[in-house]
Nucleic acid binder design. Structure first.
Length: 962
RNA sequence: GCGGGAGUUGCCAAGCCUGGUCAAAGGCGCAGGGCUUAGGACCCUGUCUUUUAGGAGUUCGUGGGUUCAAAUCCCACCUCCCGCACCA
């Protein structure tokens, strides 16, 4: 990567960072000002942060810096989330000397070898990347109060989480139940992705096991489609498989041996009693549960013993495999003399789906040209039909009480119904098998008893969350819907694990609180952390009464003081501090956290804290792309943040991330954009040395104009930032305002002025102040080179001064610009070499007519005919008769003006165009080295050889170029 | 299927919330010019069609509608992208 020759960004950044540090700029304690508490989702330190992570933090930092300059006492803290399983998996892989991982540490993350050796211990990994990430945050210039830093395995924090969970339990929001997990039978432990060979996620699917019965045995089948029980025509067995007769709890099941093993892990009592071959089962008669009907068992080769129970129910109308297997049998009917009823078995159609016939399975088999049950295309057909029927199918009349229901709904209801009658059970199947544990053993699905859940299904809780979501500020607004949707969709969530770093469940120490559940109200802990870090309090004697007192204002000071061994004054100040900073005013986070963390954050705050402490605002941002592509390790396009800072400087990165997209959009980080920004900043810095404060001189029109524009810029930028539209704000400040400055400089230059530097100093100072939340380092440097005292980050955010807005100046400059533009246009089109330019302003009657038309349009009337009548009837404007076209053209002129312009033209009353345009002289002279003459149309002595003057209209002077 | 996002002039991409300053910013590419021994880099000019007077015409996924005025608001449709879980 290229190095920078022109400027030493690193030392500029270092210089200002030290100044901020020396001034304790970002440390916040309660005071008389209004507070603003901005937080951001803390990082999980299992790798260094890359540019993508920087986005949320940068947005939050700009927010914090902006609010600080706007006069708020801003608290922006940071913590580190040690809790979770990935780090554990990494540590295990280091222990096993996993070459891939160790290489990644060494080359991609540049971790020193002696550190890597320590990584066999999970906490060491977290500690290392914690420091790495923190260093990056400091280098990025984030205005964080580091005195409040903590990790989620700090003993005091553990007490805090215990308190949280006891509160939730007291409120009846923690419940117990069973929960399936991926499981290694050898290690006797749950497995996650990081525990498996090849990092396979042990995901699984829930099947409904429907119990078919004969006089003696249960013949269970596993299905994803319980609703198709109404279409069952027969059962399938594989005649070549040896089935087991197994006692399952109190029933005797006929199942494959693989199935028996699986059931063992699902809390079933399994005892093998005997064997029976598939062939022996063929031809037997059994009963369909819930339907008073007998069907037969038939042979099929597609049935596999390791899939489900090893038995399959046949729904030929809606399952391509079943349809084909039945066809296969019928083709060879002569071989099956023992199955005389074969020809009577007909598909039963039970689902209606647009685009398909009564027997959709047959449609697909024909479409795909399938002719036997071993054809692999049957998988495809099954998948297609399943998806189609699931989303748009409806049950037919022959499904009894489920008729007319959609498949999506019926599926769940039928399952519940059969389960409720004791005719069904549940079986879990791994989606990908075999999944092997790192120890080599094949994983299974195990049903864990007595698991703990946070009951996000609780209807009152949901309702409360809904109504708060509708009251909160949520940016961008579209996300509000998404939140509401997530709230509806959320169910019970397992909130404890058997391994990992974290806090133990206070009432059942075998469990560790799950990592997303211990990071939902931690913002409150930043208050405590300051005192913990200063060694003013410690966790030893801390019990629930402490947190009750601080957070809920419950309990007696003396009692809590004696419990916790903390003096009352200190307790008071902690409580006061909490009450000062809470609630969270703004929480920033990436979009990926909406369906989980952010929603839990709202849920839990509402469950634990009183309403006055509920979060006020959530700001959500999209992710960062790298040169238009998603960042990923495998693509090798991840740039560690700290590397990027070294190459480009923190400010350029901050701007590049912010300017490339509005909140919800994905931001595209590309080298070219960064370079462009960098050179822009360097150019601006250079400019700053040119302007020094000066005494106020008499302001000329262009001075008043640029100052007016500055006021408008301030209002626009401020508004945009308040709405967190940072890209827009930056665009105004950095780019759009440039064209104003260019015009101003052109004007000043044309007049050979030298007394304008003071004006520019003022303009630039305001601009730099507005830049400083975005690009804090270079703004400090600019501020000081402008000769301003103090830190720009401590200065006040500029406020627009209405009295400095000079509407007349704006009108005049607009007229000048458009006239100059017209002249250029004419020259371009005619390709002539101008020798002389003459300009004619409109006659007084036209100006008066213009005013009248403008008034009419403003008050809503735009009928041209009546306008003409009105104007003719007035002596002042009766000359309109000579030029009726004037009205139409003028109306068009006015209508195509933006509303603001119309209003201000209305306000400034009659304008003296001759005076305005006199400024044109210097400009034309500067550009074309020729003279310009200006006449009024009504001037008797005007020079007008081509009779151009009559085409003049107000704000649209006639032009003659020769 | 549900929820969210997107479709803009050769390409990337602003504009849409708050209708008019929109033939529509910026960048890339392309063309011409400058600089240079040359190339690169850099700078200037141009880049929908048409036009020797500041103009006109046609365009912002498709089709309707509202309005004096629509890339922008409303309705319908088409296409593409993301998420749908117990993982941070």
């Amino acid at each position: 990567m290229e190095s920078d020759k022109t400027m030493d960004w690193i030392s500029i950044e270092e210089k200002w960072r030290q100044k901020w540090h020396a001034e304790k700029q970002f440390e916040s304690d309660p005071d008389a000002r209004k507070k603003f508490f901005v937080t951001v989702a803390y990082p999980y330190p299992n790798s260094p942060q890359h540019i993508g992570h920087g986005r949320t933090y940068t947005l939050a930092d700009v927010h914090a810096r902006f609010m600080r300059m706007s006069g708020y006492n801003v608290l922006f803290p940071m913590g580190f989330h040690y809790t979770g399983t990935p780090i554990l998996g990494m540590a295990r892989r280091v222990q096993e000397n996993d070459k891939n991982l160790i290489d990644a540490f060494r080359t991609l993350y540049k971790v020193p070898d002696e550190k890597i050796r320590e990584f066999s211990e999970p906490v060491k990994i977290a500690d290392y990347f914690h420091q790495e990430i923190k260093a990056g945050m400091i280098e990025m210039g984030y205005s964080i109060d580091w005195r409040r830093e903590f990790t989620t395995i700090d003993p005091f924090y553990n007490k805090f989480i215990e308190w949280q969970f006891k509160k939730l339990k007291e409120n009846g929001l923690v419940i117990q139940g069973t929960h399936p997990v991926g499981w290694c039978p050898k290690d006797q432990n749950p497995v996650s992705q990081h525990d498996t060979l090849g990092d396979v996620e042990p995901s699984f699917t829930e099947y409904t096991v429907i119990k078919f019965r004969d006089d003696k045995y249960v013949l269970p089948i596993a299905t994803l489609r319980p609703e198709t029980i109404f279409g069952v025509t027969n059962l399938w067995v594989n005649p070549d498989v040896n089935y087991e007769i197994t006692k399952v709890d109190n029933e005797e099941w006929v199942i494959s041996s693989e199935c028996a093993t699986k059931l063992g892990f699902l809390n079933k009592k399994i005892t093998k009693i005997g064997n029976i071959t598939g062939a022996e089962l063929v031809g037997r008669k059994i009963k369909i549960p819930e339907r008073n009907k007998d069907i037969f068992i038939l042979p099929a080769t597609f049935v596999e013993s390791d899939n489900g129970t090893g038995l399959v129910m046949s729904v030929p109308a809606h399952a391509p495999f079943d349809y084909q297997a039945l066809e296969d049998l019928k083709k060879n009917m002569d071989k099956y003399t023992n199955l005389p009823f074969l020809s009577e078995i007909k598909p039963i159609s039970i689902i209606e789906t647009e685009g398909y016939s009564d027997i959709p399975a047959r449609d697909l088999i024909q479409k795909l040209g399938i002719d036997n049950q071993n054809n692999p295309k049957l998988e495809e057909a099954t998948k297609e039909l399943y998806a189609k029927e699931f989303y748009s199918g409806k049950l037919k009349q022959n499904t009894g009480r489920f008729a007319q229901k959609t498949v999506t709904d019926a599926k769940e209801e039928v399952k519940k119904w059969i389960l409720g009658n004791g005719n069904a059970d549940i079986l879990y199947e791994l989606n990908e098998s075999p999944v092997r544990c790192r120890c080599g053993a094949e994983c299974v699905v195990k049903l864990l008893d007595n698991q703990w859940f946070l009951n996000y299904s609780n209807p009152e809780w949901k309702e409360k969350v809904h109504s708060w979501i509708n009251e909160m500020k949520i940016l961008p607004e579209e996300i509000r819907n998404e939140f509401n949707h997530v709230v509806d969709w959320l169910k019970e969530r397992a909130c404890a694990r058997q391994h990992g770093l974290g806090t133990k469940l206070p009432w059942d120490k075998n469990w560790i609180i799950e990592s997303l559940s211990d990071s939902v109200i931690y913002m409150a802990y930043y208050i405590i952390a300051k005192y913990v870090n200063a060694n003013q309090i410690n966790s030893e004697h801390i019990s629930d009464s402490f947190f009750d007192y601080i957070f809920l204002d419950k309990g007696k000071s003396e009692q809590v003081s004696s419990d916790s061994k903390i003096v009352s004054e200190r307790l008071e100040s902690i409580k006061k501090e909490f009450q000062y900073y809470y609630p969270v005013n703004a929480r920033h986070s990436g979009r990926d956290l909406v369906p989980n963390h952010l929603t839990f954050f709202i849920f839990n705050h509402l469950a634990i804290f009183p309403k006055k402490y509920w979060p006020e605002e959530i700001v959500v941002n999209g992710s960062v792309l790298m040169d238009g592509k998603k960042m990923s390790k495998s693509m090798g396009n991840i740039i560690p943040l700290r590397d990027a800072i070294k190459t480009h400087g923190a400010d350029s990165i901050r701007l590049a991330i912010l300017i490339s997209a509005e909140l919800l959009q994905d931001a595209d980080f590309n080298q070219e954009a960064v370079r462009g920004i960098k050179s822009k900043l360097e150019y601006m810095l250079d400019e700053c040395t040119k302007y020094k404060t000066a005494n106020e001189t008499t302001l000329t029109q262009e001075d008043r104009w640029i100052q007016s524009r500055l006021q408008q810029l301030i209002s626009k930028a401020t508004y945009s930032i308040q709405k967190m539209r940072l890209r827009e704000a930056l665009h105004y400040i950095l780019y759009e305002f440039d064209s104003d400055l260019q015009w101003y400089l052109k004007r000043v230059e044309a007049k050979n002025r030298t007394d304008h530097l003071g004006i520019l100093h003022g303009v630039f100072s305001a601009r730099v102040a507005m830049m400083s939340p975005f690009a804090p380092y270079i703004s400090e440097e600019m501020w000081s080179r402008l000769g301003n005292s103090g830190l720009v980050s401590k200065s006040s955010w500029p406020t627009p001064n209405e009295t400095k807005i000079d509407l007349l100046a704006i009108q005049s400059e607009t007229l000048l610009r458009s006239t100059l533009e017209d002249i250029k246009n004419i020259i371009k089109v005619t390709k002539m070499n101008p020798k002389k330019i003459t300009i004619y302003t409109s006659a007084p009657w036209k100006v008066k007519a213009y005013k009248k038309i403008l008034e009419k349009i403003t008050s809503g009337g735009v009928n041209i005919g009546s306008l003409i009548k009105l104007l003719i009837s007035d002596k002042e404007t009766e000359e309109i008769k000579k030029d009726p076209d004037f009205v139409k053209k003028t109306v068009n002129d006015i209508l195509s003006d933006p509303q603001d312009d119309r209003d201000s033209k209305n306000k400034v009353s009659l304008v003296d165009e001759i005076k305005m345009l006199s400024e044109l002289e210097s400009l034309i002279k500067n550009e074309y080295e020729i003279k310009v003459q200006i006449f009024s149309e009504s001037d008797q002595n005007k020079y007008d050889p081509k009779n151009k003057s009559r085409t003049a209209r107000p704000y649209k002077p006639a032009i003659l170029i020769e």
